[in-house]
């Protein structure tokens, strides 16, 4: 597991994979889901696949667009 992924890193990764501009603050906002940010199911699958490939995240992790980037960050062991 990559312990170094910061909210800003995750935000940049989400932006790159989905085309949605996301900030580090939005990533740590518990009330904001992927869907709220404009990330759909395909976009979220792209984010998860990228984390699994290059950041050591377990392949068993699954998330839905109604969950939040903050939950994802917590799963990654980052500073939420």
């Amino acid at each position: 597991m990559d312990k170094q992924l910061s909210p800003n890193d995750l935000a940049a990764l989400i932006s790159r994979c989905t085309g949605v501009t996301v900030t580090g603050e939005q990533v740590t906002d518990a009330g904001r889901s992927f869907a709220d940010l404009g990330v759909d199911s395909l976009g979220l699958m792209g984010v998860l696949a990228e984390l699994q490939r290059n950041h050591g995240m377990s392949r068993s992790v699954d998330m839905q667009p109604n969950q939040s980037p903050r939950e994802l960050l917590a799963l990654l062991g980052g500073r939420a």
Partner: peptide, 8 residues
């Protein structure tokens, strides 16, 4: 185009 669509 919406950037979300551009990447896909």
């Amino acid at each position: 185009i919406d950037p979300r669509i551009t990447v896909q």
